[in-house]
Design a protein around this nucleic acid. Structure first.
Length: 937
RNA sequence: GCUGAAGUGGUGGAAUUGGUAGACACGUUGGACUUAAAAUCCAAUGUCCAUUAGGACGUACGGGUUCAAGUCCCGUCUUCAGUACCA
């Protein structure tokens, strides 16, 4: 019988689906294990060979864990809200739900043909109302919570209201807006309901506030910081400007310290943890208050170097700083305004690109040094960012290069406070190797002591205190889009009200157009039925709005990360209509044991999810405040693009090797037109596009050679390789093995279809090990010593590889085992049966087929992983004399229960001692004459 | 600039973590089978010297530790990724 992979794979995929082989139960005698993939956004282009890489790895691990006796949860779903479906809808009028459904079908077909062991009965889709009901529910929980710094966790807003009503807010230590005023219990009780709501909004974990946001005019929406790359939008690369808008925000900053500390408790990659640490951006220092001369105004600054307080010679404010217009003098106001306008016009990108040019303006005002009372000129400059710290700095030119350059440029004094340091050329930024001088009470102190002393003195003066600052900003949660979760929010007199959770979900309304309205409202402004009736608790026609019982609903929708911030918990109990998940389900599955996904989500999804998980932990909903114990970043599979070279202004193409001094333009050409020797199929190319129909080619050695380059796989680069084709030609098992064989999981590596013949011929050889022309050739023959050795070294290596996620090397191990057993003419069932179990996580279809041929009626996935027996690896005693540097050296490979002392004694007695074999694991003893150097193993 | 990862044949990559560098695969070359091609199988394949036997060199570069270094230490260079006027 021949290896008909297409038939075999179809057969077993059908079998798995019909028998629900991989359905996980929410209780079991077995230990649980939760393996999760980052769920995909179902794009219209379908999957390319790069997408399944992580899924294959997690599938291998999940199948391995099943063999190892675990009850494995391995679900999959779709992150199905998002921009592309909406933009397609804008262009075509097609409802995003329709395109999304189509795309999901394609994805599902493509995923199924690779043979994943997903439990599809637990599928979730973020755009499904039964799912986003719970996204809305969490939003309501966040709205109804505040962050108590004393207990260091989120608490119900009711506890805060009780405190306000009994003692006011003076003693409350909460994470809240900066501008809350102090009030007493009497004040509170005298406020109107709206007044109270307005105050509470400043404390809630999700709040409505006028914030400066990243506005992308081309996309017509705001973006979170992590959605902006190099000053342009991550999607589409459109310019982004700063704009003030009223938006929902998430008070993630309340969790900054816990998000930072939590990193120490989870097994995630160092680079990813480092990214999150940088994003959170903790810095320890002090806040210092400077009085402005002749004004009531005070300037608060944050500094990490309070020890350099006597080196301050001026102040710099961000141009956008709110004090600027107040304090600028009449003489300077024109210059100041001109400068502010000039910087406002510059886009984020310009400002980032142009960091070398020093610019600024003098406000004419002076601040007062807290200790010396000396006047300090107040400048504005765009090197100070409005969005970081307080948007103002105390400038210490001798200790900070930017302040130094600014002072130099505008001829401001540069006092030196570092003993014996020359600052005539540049600032001195090193904090550890000097002593402070010219600094009154700090004279003679070193950095650490000076910082403490400075903070102590500032506190005594009431003009400063020790402070920790975080770069992490609150996350904007409103998007001016159609295809996202609607907020469960309506407005009474402009104040947001939550819809009671029992009336969820609030489903997306139908709209005629997916664009913003003519008045600039978000797309939901086009909806005709989008008002909340508080008597019937239903969404009703807008015309019924009367501001007594029917009110307008929120027009924004939630951002892409809303739906992905809790999906991993929902998989535990996805059908539950009464709760987000049952207590039993979460207590059973606890948290994700292994999460595999791309590192591009480091500061987005992975940070927001940790935030929501911690919040849900505070509410007592989940047993762990980290959602994923271990996380692995799979690398990306890159495409190998091909180029043809067109002579400038002509329809002539030069083969790669003969390009001389001509000006040629490289053009991406579809990789399917090129063979493995980089030769172009000229006819296919000519038929590709009309403009190439009459193209002329200059060949080398009779062929046209293309150029090659490794790039990200993308439609526009014509380097996409479709897994459908690979599965058709070589089978899913070959695809799975080859993706693993390509290299280490975490690494970025180029795809090269040519190499797949290696793993494919391995599968054919494997098949032949079990079958010949007469059918199955397995016998009950007793395994030979060599057979057993091959099997057990394979068991050992494969188990180690899977535990270490070194899937690439196990593929080699299988090939070696297969070759060895073929050479040994092994037909023994005793060997070949366990071998199948080893291979089945990697190549499940062929393993299932051969397994059933061996007479099993149950799926191979129910089989136990073979047990490793080291005794089969034991060699007869060997004694290798190796000449080294004129000395004799021995490497004894042995297996023994002898202690190190026994070996030592034996070797010391006689250099050529042969130690009798007695035990299990082989050991290697490195010996030089008279001395044991090392015992390995 | 800072942070992190990495640098091994023509190529993708192994190397039990200090113990025979280049496993395994692709590619290339030669051979077998075939009318022929495909498929399959066999052999060779780090570089240099040598007819052979064999020898020398070799893991980005320069030093060091060690009986022993791709692996550890110091310095230099290069590449990739993230981040960036963060006070």
């Amino acid at each position: 019988m021949k290896y008909h992979f297409n038939e075999i794979e179809e057969k077993w995929q059908k079998y798995w689906a019909e028998n629900q082989t991989f359905k996980a139960k929410n209780q079991s005698d077995k230990p649980k294990y939760y393996v999760l993939d980052m769920f995909p956004y179902p794009s219209g282009a379908g999957l390319h060979v790069g997408h399944p890489l992580g899924y294959i790895a997690s599938d291998i691990y999940a199948r391995y864990k099943r063999h190892k006796g675990f009850n494995v949860l391995h679900p999959q779903g779709y992150d199905s809200f998002g921009l592309p479906a909406e933009q397609y809808a804008i262009q075509t009028g097609q409802h995003p739900a329709v395109t999304t459904e189509e795309n999901i079908k394609t994805y599902r077909r493509q995923l199924d043909q690779i043979g994943f062991s997903f439990d599809w009965s637990r599928e979730v889709r973020t755009s499904d109302p039964n799912y986003y009901k719970w996204t809305q529910w969490i939003f309501i929980q966040l709205f109804n919570s505040w962050y108590n710094r004393v207990s260091d966790k989120a608490e119900s807003i009711d506890t805060l209201i009780a405190i306000f009503a009994s003692e006011g807010n003076a003693k409350v230590n909460a994470e809240c807006d900066d501008d809350v005023e102090v009030f007493t219990a009497e004040n509170w009780n005298s406020y109107s309901s709206e007044g109270q709501q307005e105050i509470l909004l400043k404390y809630r974990l999700t709040y409505l506030a006028e914030t400066e946001v990243n506005w992308c005019p081309a996309l017509g929406t705001v973006l979170a910081n992590d959605e902006i790359v190099n000053g342009v939008s991550e999607r589409g690369g459109h310019p982004v400007i700063r704009k003030k808008m009223t938006q929902w925000s998430m008070r993630i900053s309340a969790y900054a310290e816990r998000l930072l500390q939590g990193l120490n408790t989870i097994d995630w990659t160092d680079s990813l943890k480092e990214s999150q640490r940088n994003w959170i951006g903790k810095s320890v220092g002090a806040s210092v208050t400077f009085n402005v001369k002749g004004h009531d105004a005070k300037i608060d600054v944050f500094t990490t170097r309070p020890d350099t307080i006597f080196g301050v010679s001026f102040m710099t404010l961000a141009p956008e700083h709110e004090l600027v217009s107040q304090i600028a003098t009449d003489e300077q106001i024109d210059e100041v305004n001109a400068y502010r306008e000039a910087t406002a016009k510059r886009s984020e990108r310009d400002r980032m690109a142009d960091v070398k040019t020093i610019s600024g303006a003098f406000t004419g005002a002076y601040a007062e040094h807290p200790f010396t009372k000396a006047p300090l000129p107040i400048w504005i400059g765009d090197y100070v960012l409005a969005g970081y710290g307080t948007g103002a700095v105390m400038s210490v030119p001798c200790g900070d290069q930017r302040d130094y350059d600014f002072a130099n440029h505008f001829n401001i004094a540069i006092p030196n406070i570092f003993e014996g340091i020359d600052i005539s050329e540049e600032a001195f930024g090193d904090k550890d190797n000097t002593v402070i001088t010219n600094s009154d009470f700090l004279n003679g102190l070193k950095y650490k002591k000076a910082v403490k002393t400075a903070i102590y003195e500032l506190e005594k003066l009431g003009q400063g205190e020790g402070k920790t600052n975080y770069r992490l900003r609150d996350a904007v949660f409103s998007r001016q889009r159609y295809w996202g979760e609607p907020f469960p929010v309506y407005y009474i007199k402009g104040m947001p009200q939550m819809i009671d959770a029992k009336h969820l979900p609030i489903t997306l309304p139908e709209v005629e157009k997916y664009l913003p309205t003519e008045t600039g409202e978000p797309p939901l402004g086009n909806a005709m039925v989008w008002a909340w009736d508080t008597t019937t608790h239903t969404v009703v026609d807008n015309s019924k709005i009367n501001d007594t019982s029917v009110f307008p609903l929120e027009l924004n929708t939630m951002p892409g990360w809303a739906g992905s911030s809790q999906y991993f918990n929902r998989y535990m109990d996805p059908e539950n209509d009464d709760e987000i998940f049952s207590r039993d389900a979460i207590n059973y599955w606890q948290q994700v044991d292994l999460y595999i996904g791309g590192s591009e989500h480091a500061t987005g999804h992975l940070l927001y999810s940790r935030f929501w998980q911690k919040f849900m932990f505070d509410l007592g909903l989940v047993p762990h405040d980290e959602f994923a114990k271990k996380l692995i970043n799979q690398g990306m599979i890159l495409g190998t693009s091909a180029f043809v070279y067109r002579v400038e202004d002509q329809n002539k193409f030069l083969s790669k090797g003969i390009i001389g001094n001509e000006n040629v333009l490289p053009i991406h050409v579809d990789v399917s037109f090129v063979n493995s020797s980089d030769e172009l199929d000229i006819d296919a190319f000519k038929n590709w596009r009309p403009e190439f129909k009459n193209a002329e080619f200059t060949l080398e050695n009779g062929v046209y050679k293309v150029g090659r380059d490794v790039e990200k796989m993308s439609k526009s680069k014509y380097n996409v390789v479709n897994p459908d084709k690979i599965v058709e030609d070589y089978g899913a098992d070959s695809l799975r093995l080859y993706e693993m064989f390509l290299g280490p999981l975490e690494q970025y590596k180029p795809w090269n279809t040519a190499g797949i013949t290696g793993v494919h011929s391995f599968l054919k050889k494997l098949w032949k090990l079990y079958n010949d022309d007469n059918g199955l050739k397995i016998t009950e023959a007793v395994a030979t010593k060599d057979n057993l050795k091959t099997l057990h070294k394979t068991i050992k290596k494969v188990a180690e590889d899977i535990e270490n996620f070194s899937f690439n090397t196990s593929v080699s191990t299988f090939m070696i085992a297969c070759n060895e057993l073929t050479a040994q003419k092994c037909t023994s069932k005793e060997i070949l049966e366990p071998l199948l179990i080893l291979i089945s996580p990697y190549a499940p279809h062929i393993a299932e087929e051969l397994w059933s041929q061996l007479g099993h009626s149950e799926s191979i996935s129910t089989a136990d992983f073979p047990i490793f027996d080291a005794s089969h690896l034991v060699e007869s005693t060997k004694n290798y004399p190796i000449s080294f540097n004129g000395k004799m050296r021995f490497t004894l490979e042995l297996s023994l229960d002898l202690s190190k002392d026994d070996i030592e004694a034996a070797v010391m007695a006689d250099e050529k001692t042969i130690v009798q074999l007695q035990g299990r694991e082989p050991k290697k003893v490195i010996v030089v004459p008279g001395k044991i150097v090392n015992i390995v193993g």
